[in-house]
Design a protein around this nucleic acid. Structure first.
Lengths: 186, 186
DNA sequence: GGAAATCCTTGATCCGGATCAAGATTCTGG
DNA sequence: CCAGAATCTTGATCCGGATCAAGGATTTCC
């Protein structure tokens, strides 16, 4: 069965007909290779993407360094949220870590659909609420002083991350160096 | 003019009749004195509050210490967001820093109103979106390494905070000790 | 399959923010 | 207005995570 269709039903709780109707708007398939950028700083995010297969990182650059702020992986949505919502240039880069297949819907189409499909609108509101709650959780992680505890919290909440993403990106995400992560993982 | 009415119009962009109709649901006035708790850890947040006058801090306790995660001040809304959205016990404390006057609407009333007033629903979605964008900004602040820069970012974004809130709470909010804040403010 | 790039680990050193302490200042509430 | 509490400042010391460095292990992709 179409995995995006299943995502609509199981993750967004959309009824079958609505899920089917929405499917045809998710087009514009994109393929990325390791290192390719899905979105770059300065671009206005014009799509909401569904990841059919692959992993990506979201990062911004701060004084020569890249600071990772999130990940995307198979069967989730990914986008530069602030850029998409505000329709302004993104501060973030979205970069593929390996071969990646995506389906996208354009910003314009998406906002048009929101008006026609009330269930989609409430689904979107739930997504935004969940994203907010996720950030609040993450805030507590970032405020935790001890590196060891920060690692532990992520291990508890998202153990699969450690299977999917090279440690150096996880270290950045956890506000520590790869060395510190390595020393506190065993 | 009623400041809450003005808030509805100017901040939430609600039309005049709708703003007027909503006014009567914001009742249950509460008065707090310095140190009083509006909400405590473990309580389920039953209200959305409008601050008529006063300042509050939002914090949670982590190993004997209190970690400040936000502030509330005159003419803004305040609540324990995760508790209100999820209808679950709050991890946060909301505490008044001085004499404070609030108006509240109950969670039940509020969600009922969302169904009857589409403009309120979209206003709420905007509030959630804005809260999310605010958290994303805050994440960048927290990931900034240098204490001096973290202070600077807050000074740029919310200079009024420094007039309203004692420095020790600001220091906690900025993930540093009061000593470090003091040493880097001049 | 194999060379090259990337990533991970371990060790040694350094430094900036936390901690501890004490005094000065400001705020609070009766 | 005044006493006591809370807050802010400044100084001295300490410590844990960053940095620098190098070798080993994996992964990538022609």
């Amino acid at each position: 069965m179409n995995p995006l269709y299943r995502y609509f039903q199981e993750q967004l709780h959309l009824p079958a007909e609505e899920a089917a109707a929405l499917l045809r708007f998710w087009q514009k398939p994109r393929s990325l290779r390791r290192g390719d950028f899905l979105t770059r700083k300065g671009q206005v995010e014009q799509h909401l993407y569904y990841i059919q297969e692959g992993t990506l990182i979201i990062f911004y650059d701060i004084e020569e360094n890249e600071q990772v702020v999130g990940f995307g992986y198979t069967d989730t949505m990914i986008l530069s949220v602030p850029s998409f919502i505000r329709n302004r240039p993104s501060d973030y880069y979205l970069q593929a870590l390996g071969p990646t297949e995506l389906l996208g819907i354009t910003r314009t189409d998406f906002y048009r659909l929101l008006e026609h499909y009330p269930r989609l609108e409430s689904a979107w509101r739930r997504m935004v609420e969940e994203a907010l709650l996720g950030r609040i959780e993450r805030e507590i992680d970032l405020l935790t002083v001890s590196p060891r505890e920060r690692i532990q919290r992520l291990l508890n909440r998202s153990p699969h991350i450690f299977q999917l993403i090279p440690n150096k990106y996880i270290a950045s995400y956890l506000r520590m160096t790869p060395e510190t992560l390595s020393r506190n993982m065993r």
